[in-house]
Amino acid sequence: MLKQYSFEKTAVQSFDAQTTLALKTEDLQVFYGANHAMHDANLGFPKNQITALIGASGSGKSTYLRSLNRMNDGIATVTGKIWYHGVNINEPNVNIYEIRKHIGMVFQRPNPFSKSIRENIVYALKANGMKSKADLDERVETSLRGAALWDEVKDTLDKSALSLSGGQQQRLCIARSIAMAPDVLLLDEPCSALDPISTVKVEETLLELQKQYTIIIVTHNMQQAARVSSQCAFFHLGHVMEYTSTGTMFSNPQIPVTQDYIAGSFG
């Protein structure tokens, strides 16, 4: 039986003016019909850092993440503000296609298209009007290198992406996202379908990528959050309960619900 925790007592950090934030949400609420899935999320994401969103199933962390690049459009109602480069991107007249070019997303289940490895990466570039073969080839190489996949696939770029292993497929999906040169990369439990060795590779890739990108990763796995993130937010039943640096989160959590979750009492 899950203990009742007060949603009044939260410990959510905010950043001072010196910290550059890549993305920030203000009073973000998400509703699935009558179901209030996310309450008042006020989070800022420092540039070129990895932020982990942790919490039990149904805590709203994936819902929150999907709202950030408007993937919840047509699925859920999202209110509140999402600040990106000084613009509130949670407004109807904002071009969602443009947003998603800058805020990329990688999903829980590796989802490459049933096309060749090369086609998977150039798909969005072509759709965006890039035509020159030299440019496309260069992007294929840089993004595959960025996702630490180049050495494994450079000779088989025209093979079907579905012939890759799960871990390779997920790194291909990361490569596909960074090919669009986004600022922010959203990852929704990217390793939950992967074996430990593939997971290590993806994590190494992320640590390398944070030099260029701001990364927000939803994870079920607390060890993973501890390994890769600098900031960590804990979600519980649709509320952000605690947001702090990862070190503090795991060594000295401030409120009872976080303490119990970190200690493994539930989740």
């Binding site: 690049n69 296609y97 070019k101 997303m105």
Partner: peptide, 13 residues
């Protein structure tokens, strides 16, 4: 469905 999601998440219309 995830094909569609993947494509939309890449900024495709």
């Amino acid at each position: 469905r995830y094909y569609k999601e993947a494509s939309l998440a890449l900024g495709a219309t």
